[in-house]
Design a protein around this nucleic acid. Sequence first.
DNA 1: GTCTATAAGCGGATAGAC
DNA 2: GTCTATCCGCTTATAGAC
Lengths: 202, 202
Amino acid sequence: MARTTGSNGEETAKRIDEVALKLFAQKGYAAVSMREIAREVGVQAGALYNYSPNKQDLLARLMVEHMNDLLKAWADLDPNAMAPLDALKAFVLFHIRYHVQRPDQVFISYMELRNLEPENFSKVEELRRKYEAALKDILKRGHDQGQFVLEDVHVTTMAILAQLTGVTTWYRAKGRLSQQKIEEIYTQLVCQSVGAQSSEEI
Amino acid sequence: MARTTGSNGEETAKRIDEVALKLFAQKGYAAVSMREIAREVGVQAGALYNYSPNKQDLLARLMVEHMNDLLKAWADLDPNAMAPLDALKAFVLFHIRYHVQRPDQVFISYMELRNLEPENFSKVEELRRKYEAALKDILKRGHDQGQFVLEDVHVTTMAILAQLTGVTTWYRAKGRLSQQKIEEIYTQLVCQSVGAQSSEEI
DNA sequence: GTCTATAAGCGGATAGAC
DNA sequence: GTCTATCCGCTTATAGAC
């Protein structure tokens, strides 16, 4: 079993993150032991501590990195240049596609918040708020310009986010509906929910 | 500390459920120990096993009882007698009010599913599907009668449920908005999302 | 960078006294 | 019905050899 020769730090680091992510998403942070992660990576438990000072840091790092990636990916679309309705549609598509491609990252970043120690919680929460603000800005712009019919920007933001994030709980690649079809359904649903047309004026 | 005299089985049973529910919701099932539950109840850990054969059963019982209560409460409203739009509004109000009154029960019944052993999971899942079917039936009736504009009954059901359940993640009794105001916002949002008017024809 | 070995403690669960 | 005491496996994390 000992494979000191041929060991490869970078490869191990990558595998630890992959394995930890998968197991945390599957069973929950508290239910997964460092030994279990190590076993699946193919190293002994002690070796994990070359990459994270402790279990908590491993979780926090996964979550922070995910949130940063998410924010960057959204910012790369340059959404501020879009009209509110276009931006809203872009957000719906972006959010669903991001979920479908990285279900585990998205899942733990919502589910494992309560297992973060206060300091780490604050970091992740700040990034989460930034992501929420992305949708909030779109709704605010659309509301201010009279294009969206909604009662409260904040509540509507939270409602739409919960709705979109919920896709992870039931989406399966081999399911009844194609991903594209699901995107269409959600686009229509969200546009309708803010009183806008999803597919007119093409 | 020993208080054998004056012990009271029924009272203890109730307190165990209350405490376990609170702690499971706060920290997650796997992160809560039987000792911690016992401490908060005011008994020794061994005493808990007079009420549940093991920790898993304690969780499963809380979840099954909650789902049964939820289904009964909804059925008591006699929703089948209502027109689709009225039934949809009733569902929105019911779901939000139920969440706000029993946030912990609702929370664990969604979050702790993955910590249930297969047999218990099946039981809870069946009850969950029944609850989902309640909303699904409303949407189907409204769609069949041409009152709702929606692409897919199942996906729309899951989307609305996720949206409504999401209220627990941010609702606070002392928050900016009254519960009634939040109910209004969600009613409008949901009605709009299925292409129906929330407040016309009164 | 990884291993083995181990520290130090907490986990679920049980037995038997009262 | 509750307590005390206990079994024993598993937990995170560290130390030091290679």
